[in-house]
């Protein structure tokens, strides 16, 4: 009986993704966030900074973590965690409003 090899030979990248280009986009988004924080101190600027953070996180999750190419099952797992988070947030929101007032 021949010994089975530990791994088979990989067939090449499963997806062609421009990782370096995406890195430049992420760094550019970081620069925009910094400029907004330095020169603008409005609520709109704060909202834009968070929107940029969400976009950056989405790029890393979808393309670096390959979440875009995962089966729906994996996305359901993450959504379940976010649902738990929403329940935690909702419960604590009521508690904090009760303690600190509306």
């Amino acid at each position: 009986m021949t010994a089975a090899p530990a791994t088979s030979v990989p067939a090449g990248p499963a997806h062609r993704i421009p990782y370096v280009t995406l890195w430049f986009i992420l760094v550019g988004a970081l620069a925009v966030s910094l400029l907004l924080a330095v020169f603008e101190h409005t609520r709109l600027a704060a909202a834009l900074i968070f929107a940029i953070a969400i976009a950056k996180a989405a790029i890393v999750a979808m393309y670096y973590m390959h979440l875009r190419f995962e089966p729906r099952y994996v996305i359901v797992v993450i959504l379940a965690a976010l649902a738990c988070l929403f329940i935690l947030f909702s419960g604590l929101l009521l508690d904090i409003v009760h303690v600190y007032g509306g």
């Binding site: 924080a37 968070f50 953070a53 996180a57 973590m65």
Partner: peptide, 25 residues
């Protein structure tokens, strides 16, 4: 291990504006 490492990066992507940037508003 790469997927875990990217998640660590994603967490910092949120922590940085929360604690360093938007708080200055």
């Amino acid at each position: 291990v790469g997927i875990y490492w990217h998640f660590v990066d994603v967490v910092w992507i949120f922590l940085f504006p929360l604690l360093y940037l938007a708080s200055r508003g």
